[in-house]
């Protein structure tokens, strides 16, 4: 469905000198510097996948999304959507994709929502019947029907994002790109958005690529994660597989009757306060049941709790790894 091959994007940045002197100097001579935002990405996305594209701020993920959607032209390398190079055949190829930017809207601020949709219907040359069908589907998922008459400038962020999602789906794209779609949304709107993504993925078979900083989005939606930093790929794989690889441990919290700290040869003590001790152990070496029974044989236990390494740990470790390398 989507193939990204050896993708590079460089920006030419003019360096301004410091202070008044530097500013004056740069009026006459600009020091130009080339900055690589994306430095050789290769990956393939299959039809029907939901891929989470994650990385810290400034990692190049938004630049990559913009090259994948035909907005920016790569310095070198190529993006193929359904076998077509989007940079070369932008006008034809963008018909196959829908894009939603969480931080900007494609809805016309001055018009009623339906008027933007009518404009898009003409731009994408959608038959009236198909258009009405899609609107009906969107109404059942997002409840867009009641917003059609509303001017966009009067909408809340949640309503606006619903409008943007519908706008992106009007021409039945094969791929939907979402760039930080849940940014700034309340819990209810986030829930609706995630439900929407799952539904169009299962019902219509739409391939979804999203960038996000929201761990809930990743956990609930993404089967596959692509982690990038400094414009290079850090990791690509199944969510659970990445968790297994990056953070193959769990934490056990044990509350004893007394203030005591029993040790275990295969578990590391993270903290001990009052009667509560936290142990970290490797999933491969030890089961939780084994650890609990070993500890309880040493000392009576009042209560236990087990935590998986959270997705936030994974992200933190994955990002930290990239800083070191």
């Amino acid at each position: 469905m989507i193939t990204v091959r050896d993708l590079h994007k460089e920006y030419l940045v003019s360096e301004k000198g410091k202070g008044l002197g530097g500013t004056l100097k740069s009026l006459f001579r600009n020091e130009k510097k080339i900055i690589g935002a994306v430095n050789g990405l290769d990956f393939h996305v299959n039809k029907g996948e939901i891929v989470g594209f994650i990385g810290p701020n400034g990692s190049g993920k938004s630049t990559t999304i913009k090259m994948m959607t035909g907005i920016l032209t790569p310095t070198s390398g190529e993006v193929l959507i359904d076998g077509r190079n989007i940079a070369r055949y932008r006008k034809e190829t963008v018909r196959k994709i829908g894009v939603v930017f969480g931080q900007r809207t494609q809805l016309n601020w001055d018009l009623r929502l339906e008027e933007t949709f009518e404009l898009l219907r003409r731009i994408y040359q959608i038959e009236k019947k198909d258009y009405l069908d899609i609107l009906e589907v969107m109404d059942s998922i997002l409840g867009i029907g009641e917003l059609l008459d509303k001017p966009v400038r009067q909408m809340s962020l949640g309503q606006r994002v619903k409008g943007d999602l519908t706008a992106a789906m009007l021409h039945s794209p094969k791929v939907l790109f979402l760039d930080e779609p849940t940014i700034g949304l309340d819990a209810g709107s986030k829930y609706a958005l995630r439900k929407f993504i799952k539904e169009i993925n299962t019902i219509r078979g739409t391939t979804v690529i999203l960038t996000t900083h929201d761990l809930g989005d990743i956990q609930e939606l993404c089967e596959r994660l692509i982690i990038i930093n400094n414009g290079v790929m850090m990791d690509d794989g199944n969510l659970s597989e990445i968790v297994e690889r990056i953070a193959p441990y769990r934490t056990l919290t044990v509350e004893y009757y007394d203030s005591i700290v029993p040790t275990h040869p295969k578990a590391e003590i993270l903290s001990a306060a009052d009667n509560v001790v936290r142990y970290k152990f490797m999933k491969r070496e030890l089961t939780a049941a084994r650890l609990i029974s070993d500890l309880s044989s040493l000392h009576p236990i009042r209560d236990v709790g087990i935590e998986e390494a959270g997705i936030d740990d994974i992200i933190r470790i994955a990002y930290a790894k990239t800083v070191q390398s």
Binding site: K91, I97, F101
Partner: peptide
């Protein structure tokens, strides 16, 4: 300036 050029370019128009 506002970055909305992205919206213009993602549509199938000249």
């Amino acid at each position: 300036e506002k970055g909305s050029i992205a919206i213009d370019l993602m549509r199938p128009v000249n």
